[in-house]
Amino acid sequence: MLPDTERWFVPPDLQLHWHCYGETCLVFNPRSGRTHRLEQWVMDLLEALRQGPVSLSALMEHLGLSQEEREGAREKFNRTIWELDRLGLIFPAGL
């Protein structure tokens, strides 16, 4: 579990390349040189993180999730954030 004090962002100069097919997008990250298959909601999440470093709670609030929804979604978000960090699609504040 990631500490909620950690804040995440997508740098403005990270220009992802993408092709979307329905709800699935293939994304090429020119920094890592890797190609990923992402669901549309993850694309929206990446877009939200372009606004600047935010914590997980603030992010869920920004995406309009209610208090109960947030509790239910926390683990899914947590895993997604962990994975996106590992793939180098998002960065912790300070990097």
């Binding site: 020119p30 920094r31 040189g33 180098g88 912790p92 990097l95």
Partner: peptide, 13 residues
């Protein structure tokens, strides 16, 4: 060069 820059970024991470 991409590899080099990305490795440095990952090491910083």
């Amino acid at each position: 060069e991409r590899m080099l820059r990305w490795e440095v970024n990952r090491i910083r991470r």
